[in-house]
């Protein structure tokens, strides 16, 4: 196991508002790490900083031991793919167009569409089950299919690391499972290292090797879901009074809420 991505004493904020004040986190190769926490705890902000979408006010992010802000952005894009929350695509774009865009960091003005680009896009479409929909406009797809198309674009980028910011938002439960099963497959079959932010604790527990629980910009607990998701932690992090039982299907912890608890 080696650390592929690491936040070192990272401080994040917008303007005067400090959101994360001195946080350390390492992401091991070949794992699915899921960041959980209440709204506004800084989990998306942390993910964006790991993907160099925002610049830390202090500290730094290391990618394979090198400072990410000192690496050429193109080189980073060949190692790490980011899927932002609710990404926007121009109207009328087809699935193939979108997924092909993932090859951007591998292309130059004299190498616009190499056989390598073509096979990477075909593979990404196949892995996400979208080969038959390749010529369809993105706006005609269902929410789950559209999210798979975006993940497919990140896959075509050909990176070992994938950062997904709430990939299941706005999806109904069946589509949430569809997307998370895909992420699980990419991890198991293609050996991708995945970091994602999820809201649903039960799904997070089921699909992650490692949970990172955050509150007020700090990591409260990190480790295997069974160790992290405890009744005490739910009270501390979410202010939630809950019972933890064993998920009868996956054997992972299952949160059964009782009511809100007094924090602290």
């Amino acid at each position: 196991m080696n650390t592929r991505l690491e936040a070192v004493d990272i401080r994040l904020g917008y303007g005067d508002r400090m959101i994360v004040d001195g946080l350390d986190l390492g992401i091991e190769s070949g794992t699915i790490t899921t960041i959980i926490g209440p709204n506004g705890c800084g989990k998306s902000t942390l993910l964006r900083a790991l993907g160099r979408l925002i610049k830390p006010l202090g500290g730094h992010v290391l990618l394979d031991g090198k400072r990410i802000d000192r690496m050429p952005s193109r080189e980073v894009a060949r190692l790490l793919g980011v899927l932002p929350q609710a990404p926007a695509a121009p109207e009328g774009l087809t699935v193939a167009d979108l997924v092909a865009r993932g090859r951007h960091p591998h292309q130059t003005w004299y190498r616009q569409w190499s056989p390598g680009d073509e096979s990477a896009v075909a593979e990404a479409l196949e892995r996400t089950g979208l080969l038959d929909l390749a010529d369809r406009p993105l706006d005609e797809l269902s929410g789950g299919q559209r999210q798979r198309a975006w993940i497919s674009m990140a896959l075509a980028q050909g990176t070992g690391l994938l950062l997904l910011d709430e990939p299941t938002t706005f999806l109904d439960l069946a589509h949430q499972i569809e997307v998370l099963e895909l992420v699980d497959q990419l991890h198991a079959q293609a050996g991708k290292t995945v970091v994602m932010v999820l809201h649903d604790l039960n799904l997070a527990a089921r699909y992650a090797d490692r949970l990172v629980a955050m509150r007020d910009g700090r990591v409260i607990a990190a480790g295997p879901p069974g160790d992290v998701l405890t009744e005490e932690l739910l009270a501390e992090v979410f202010g939630l009074n809950a019972k933890i039982i064993t998920d009868p299907v996956a054997g992972t912890p299952l949160v059964v809420p009782i009511g809100t608890a007094d924090r602290g």
């Binding site: 080189e75 793919g81 990404p87």
Partner: peptide
């Protein structure tokens, strides 16, 4: 004209473009 490819990546919003390696 050298910026053609960058412009087409910029269409996808700031975060996606940055993720694709556009400065």
């Amino acid at each position: 004209l050298a910026g053609t490819r960058v412009l087409s990546a910029l269409r996808f919003g700031d975060e996606t473009a940055t993720g694709l390696g556009v400065r």
